[in-house]
């Protein structure tokens, strides 16, 4: 069990995270927040790259910084920007990372074969990485994070650069991995986590807004999401979430208490919740009428 207890992180007068309290057990946890909210700061503290200004992070009751190598050997990390040697092949890159992870060379070779297969990169195992697309590089990065069969897998924006097919494949891999480990997945793309995350952590204004199951988050917006025909009146209490085309014409999707005129109630999605919970303060000058 990984627990974050009253953790605050400050940088020269700027507070990136304030009094964070979270507990992670086996399963996938999605860190869903806009860019700049503090997701990366939190993940870097979990991977010991940053040190908390206050509070502590414990793994099975033991402070992670004090655990040193014993902690790092059970952590797999894919940073937001995956760096690599352009002249290396995926096999060579993974062998180097395996050496850094202290994985025995024979075991590493076996594991590399498995992982390259899992991320569908076996065919390109001996091709130089400078020839790869962003998605292919990201797949090597995912394989690298899994090299040491980590108990805690930390993935910072792992789906950036992946095409829809690769995203689905990646979600499936994560889902199968989460049975016996903690998977922390940071993203600002709702679809990355809505189907696989056991719990979703939302961070706003440098504080943890919630750490709940997707169903619990959706419950917060139950009876608050509406679809209204374009051009209908909308009060200031309502927030526009999206516009979409239907068979009856263009409609506006909005959230707020009280039923707007001509509105039809709809089930909230996680994306609605994301947009609503991270809404900016209401615009005082907004027009009453809704138009494109």
């Amino acid at each position: 069990m990984l627990s974050i207890e009253h953790v605050t992180k400050r940088y020269r007068g700027f507070t990136a995270l304030s009094d964070v309290n979270l507990t992670f057990e086996t399963g996938v946890y999605g860190l869903l927040a806009p860019n700049g909210a503090g997701k990366t700061t939190l993940l870097k503290m979990i991977t010991t790259l940053l040190f908390p200004s206050e509070g502590e992070i414990l793994y099975n009751g033991e402070e992670i910084l004090g655990m040193g190598e014993r902690y790092r050997e059970i952590v797999g990390y894919l940073p937001q920007k995956y760096g690599y040697y352009r002249s290396f092949t995926p096999r060579k890159m993974l062998r180097y990372m395996a050496a850094l992870q202290g994985v025995d060379q024979r075991e590493a070779d076996r594991r590399i074969e498995e992982l390259l297969k899992a991320v569908s990169m076996s065919e390109y195992a001996d091709t130089k990485m400078k020839k790869f697309s962003g998605g292919m590089i990201q797949r090597v990065g995912i394989a690298q994070a899994l090299l040491n069969d980590p108990k805690i897998l930390v993935l910072d924006e792992p789906t950036a650069g992946l095409d829809p097919k690769e995203r689905v494949r990646f979600r499936n891999i994560l889902h199968s991995l989460s049975k016996d480990r903690i998977v922390l997945l940071s993203t600002h793309i709702v679809s990355d986590v809505e189907s696989i995350a056991q719990k979703i952590v939302m961070i706003r204004d440098h504080h943890v807004l919630c750490c709940e199951t997707p169903a619990e988050i959706l419950k917060r917006l139950e009876g608050m999401v509406w679809e209204i025909p374009e051009g209908s009146a909308l009060s200031r209490e309502h927030m526009i979430l999206a516009e979409r085309q239907t068979e009856e014409g263009p409609v506006i999707r909005a959230a707020g208490s009280g039923r707007p005129e001509n509105a039809k109630i709809v089930s909230p999605s996680l994306e609605d919740a994301f947009l609503y919970l991270y809404r900016e303060e209401p615009d005082e000058n907004r027009e009453e009428g809704v138009s494109k």
């Binding site: 790259l49 790092r72 990390y77 995956y82 760096g83 040697y85 990372m97 850094l100």
Partner: peptide, 21 residues
């Protein structure tokens, strides 16, 4: 420089070897 310029330092520093790389 190789790791610093390719943004690999963070990834390597989080490995078992850690900052002692």
């Amino acid at each position: 420089g190789t790791e610093r310029e390719t943004d690999m330092e963070k990834m390597i520093a989080s490995s078992l070897t850690g900052r002692r790389f």
